[in-house]
């Protein structure tokens, strides 16, 4: 049996940051709180898909809202306890197993907060295999599952359960309620039973994050392909429709690279040529420490390594690709080239 403990928490945290591809919220914002809960309640068990039992109900969990609110009005137990109480009441006969909704970024850690309090197991998988900005950019959405209900609960112990009529409606309602709850809340959707897992789960995400984190901490990451090492010579940040958009220019000895982001790093130009794009996981590591750098932390003069990692195989199918390629992000390549 594998476990998350205060000893290996740092691996999960830095591996999740790498898979976050610049977005997903910096895991650091939940690391201290999780460390505290693990020190109070002991380690959390991580189970594989093979260990899932027929009566298990898998509850994907995330923080929803603004990461910035989450670092200011820091999370408390109440929001997770309330969510769990409500789900337990709705599914009295099920064993609850938690799972990260999104392995990239801070939400890799979110289910472990609740798991530690109630000694629940966490399933080694997630819905995405990296980070993406919208709810419809996940495996169950691509598979068009019909189960469109969700739970949102607040730091003051309020909880809302709702059923949506469409995927955009699900996202819209969840964001409306989150706003009402101070713009940072606990969130669960795409709850599924053991027999439905094939439509929902990207398997082994947690172990992948652990392994990547271990490699980063050893300062060598064979799984990540080095595109270039250089210095950031230009950064532009702007906000559009609540997303952090912009670009950064990286200069290495001989070449110039332009990297575009919408929360996550989505596209890399080398000169006029696209050399990496979503769903490939694109990440920037601070050269000295090998720390993944979130898009909001980019700044002039940083020494960086630009790396790419293969996304989970699921994203290679045409129907999946259509949800997360540059067209889905509304990117017009001609407008974006480096002048």
């Amino acid at each position: 049996m594998k476990q998350l403990s205060i000893e290996n928490l740092a691996y999960l945290s830095s591996g999740a940051a790498l898979l976050g591809s610049g977005g997903g919220g910096d895991p650091v914002i939940l690391t201290d709180f999780l460390h505290y809960l693990l020190s109070q309640h002991g380690p959390v068990d991580i189970i594989s898909l093979a260990e899932l039992k027929p009566d298990d109900l898998v509850v994907p969990l995330a923080m929803i809202g603004a990461p910035l609110v989450c670092i200011e009005r820091i999370p408390n137990q109440d929001m997770f306890v309330q969510l769990f109480t409500q789900i337990k009441r709705d599914y009295p006969d099920k064993n609850i197993v938690l799972m990260p909704a999104e392995i990239g970024g801070c939400n890799a850690l979110t289910p472990f907060l609740l798991a530690s309090i109630y000694h629940l197991p966490v399933l080694d998988g997630d819905l995405i295999g990296r980070a993406f900005p919208k709810i419809n950019m996940c495996k169950p959405a691509v598979n068009k599952v019909s189960n469109l209900q969700a739970y949102v609960s607040s730091a003051l112990g309020e909880c809302v359960h709702f059923v949506a009529h469409s995927m955009p409606d699900l996202e819209d309602q969840a964001r409306q309620i989150t706003m009402r709850f101070g713009c940072s809340a606990a969130f669960s959707t795409f709850i599924f039973t053991a027999d439905q897992q094939e439509k929902y789960v990207i398997p082994n995400s947690i172990m992948r994050a652990f392994e990547l984190g271990r490699q980063l901490q050893a300062k060598q990451c064979p799984e990540a392909t080095l595109i270039t090492a250089g210095v950031i010579t230009e950064v532009e940040h702007r906000i559009e429709n609540g997303f952090l958009m912009g670009h950064a220019i990286i200069r290495s000895q001989a070449e110039t690279y332009k990297i575009l982001f919408q929360n996550e790093y989505l596209l890399v130009f080398k000169g006029q040529e696209i050399i990496a794009e979503s769903p490939t996981i694109i990440s920037l590591l601070e050269t000295r420490s090998k720390t993944p750098i979130a898009s909001e932390s980019l700044r002039y003069g940083l020494q960086v390594e630009l790396v790419s990692l293969a996304p989970p195989a699921f994203w290679d199918t045409p129907s999946a690709l259509a949800q997360v390629n540059r067209t889905a992000f509304g990117m017009n390549v001609e407008d974006l080239k480096y002048e």
């Binding site: 603004a66 910035l68 609110v69 713009c183 906000i239 609540g242 997303f243 952090l244 929360n263 909001e296």
Partner: peptide, 10 residues
């Protein structure tokens, strides 16, 4: 200027 992104009012 540091944008505070994801905030409901930018």
């Amino acid at each position: 200027t540091l944008p505070l992104h994801y905030m409901p009012t930018p």
